[in-house]
Write a protein that binds this DNA or RNA. Structure first.
Lengths: 326, 326
DNA sequence: TACAGTTGGGTCAACGCTGACGTGATCGTC
DNA sequence: GACGATCACGTCAGCGTTGACCCAACTGTA
């Protein structure tokens, strides 16, 4: 019933544990015959290495922590998919946790992960926790932040090229001939990049860039922000939303108030979550390559954990997807 | 730079490591004064317990493996949310992996998790891998299967009450007056429960229960199965789909071929994934309480890992949600 | 033949922690 | 005031592995 150890395999094969350890780790230096004999013994007794014991001496766990905000964020599944695929390719395991956007919980989670001995952490940081991350990084934890700026030179970062995406979306609206363009932004001010690109694109075209309403990045928030923006500025003919969820909320508000999309008001979202093509009308949006972000994050995490060298920040290209709301 | 250990705290506080260990683990038997002194020392040196070392001696990792099919399965996020919340409450960590429905990969993942020393595994098993799970369970791995029958008496199981849900959906269609009711089923025969309840509900009403088309449980599969069913049996006035994704595919096919839903053909889905209320028209479906499934699974996993006693299988109640496609 | 190098192993300690057990001091009791 | 119980710690070994080092037998070479 109790698990076989190196020692069990060793006695079964008539060698020392050290020799068994060598074949388990694919080291060289024993005859083909004993190697085969040991392999057979391993299968025979059903031996599996005890990773806790191994990591106690090697100081590596081949484990990466993944810390996100909410699992139900439509952003998550593809990101996690990329992370897991890349992790498996590099023979690493993923420890998952969600912060629910709570800074204390995030700290607790990171401490637990450090205790577990993760080689690195890939994190979607709670807004405003940069100093905490900085401290942890100085304490020796390898950190890769996703979709945020690296809070310290020892922290790596991957992000979609959000600025470019927001510029793309805004410019697209201008090309369609819109001159009164609003933005539905996020109160929790993660949206600096998006707002910045929105504003500068409009200013470059000599247009009013002040039509911005802010709300929570939810369906309800989208409805509310759209209501606020349109009520205050009825002449608005197009809106760029912080993300697809808000865009869909805006769509609901617009259609609910008898407006035609895109006839009366055009809408562009951001993210290209799976449901964008299933709603009516299908949403124009900016596609983020979430899976690739995940893959890059793992690459960086592994590099950071082995060399200790901090990889350069990477921006993953985005793409405008024109459907039927613009 | 290197991490402080019990020993570092001990010298800092002027006690033995054993005493520090006692306060870390909240054991009793030391004066309030030394307890405080040690607590201060812990903060001071920034000590975090090394869980690998601890689990090497306690033979517990307080870690639970979660093995799903695909992260992008809309079923996943809420399940994982429940699992993670429950795990945190019980002070456990989650190790995540996806099988992509590949039996070999699943075996590899389970072996790795066993190597990591997980206390238990919560798994959405790949169809047909029951014997493998049975072996693993006999080898001492604590397993909880989700939405599947327990393959052995030593394996625990939680599932939504799928049979009841399918009966509810079918009966609802009959109440609406439909007499030619079809089903869009899953080729990968996970759907025994659903088909069984569908057939017996129709038979109890003395109706034809043979209108079943099978395809992959995807959008495309839903379109294809609907096409096949309606082409072969044009008199069909209602369909019950294996899941919401197939139902939405069917909706696309029906609307694409000029039919009115629910006027010409009514549609009921299964699962109640988030996008069901966002599409047009909003989909009638059977709501599964995925989060609660996750919570129950963790409860069982922890029980199984501590007592070794196998909890009784649990069926989580479901609920019919009538929207606008029926 | 003598000697250096290589091949195929083995020995031992240490990683950080906790279970089992020991011990000296204090306390209560009759 | 003698003695058992309790308190507040300390000692030691061992969990399963690997790094560092050792060693005996063989191989080739001068």
């Amino acid at each position: 019933m109790k698990k076989p150890t190196l020692h069990d395999v060793a006695t079964a094969a008539g060698v020392s544990t050290r020799t068994v350890s060598r074949v388990v780790n694919g080291e060289s230096g024993m005859s083909e015959a004993t190697r085969e004999r040991i392999r057979a013994a391993i299968k025979d007794v059903g031996y599996l290495p005890n990773l806790a014991a191994r990591s106690l001496v090697t100081r590596k766990t081949k484990t990466i922590g993944l810390v996100v905000g909410e699992l139900t964020d439509p952003f998550f599944p593809e990101l996690a998919d990329g992370v897991m695929r890349a992790a498996r390719r590099r023979d690493h395991t993923i420890l998952l946790s969600a912060t629910s956007d709570d800074a204390n919980l995030q700290t607790e989670i990171l401490e637990r992960m450090a205790s577990q001995g993760v080689d690195a952490v890939i994190i979607f940081p709670v807004f405003g926790t940069e100093p905490i991350l900085r401290d942890l990084a100085e304490g020796g934890l390898a950190i890769v932040v996703v979709d945020a700026e690296a809070p310290a030179p020892t922290i790596a970062s991957v992000a979609s090229d959000i600025r470019a995406g927001a510029a793309l979306a805004t410019a697209h609206l201008l090309e369609r001939g819109h001159r009164r363009v609003g933005m539905l932004s996020n109160v929790r001010s993660h949206s600096r990049w998006r707002e910045g690109a929105f504003v500068s694109t409009l200013e470059a075209a000599g247009l009013d860039s002040s039509l911005i309403a802010r709300a929570a990045p939810t369906l309800e928030g989208g409805r509310r922000a759209a209501d606020e923006l349109i009520s205050k500025h009825p002449s608005t003919t197009a809106v760029f939303a912080y993300n697809d969820v808000m865009a869909i909320g805006a769509l609901q508000y617009l259609q609910g108030s008898g407006r035609i999309v895109p006839g009366d008001v055009a809408v562009v979202g951001f993210d290209d979550i799976p449901m964008t093509e299933l709603i009516t009308p299908p949403l124009s949006t900016v596609r983020l390559d979430r899976e690739r972000v995940g893959v890059e994050a793992v690459r960086m995490a592994v590099a950071l954990a082995s060399d200790g060298a901090v990889p350069d920040p990477v921006a993953i290209p985005v793409e405008l997807v024109v459907r039927h709301t613009t």
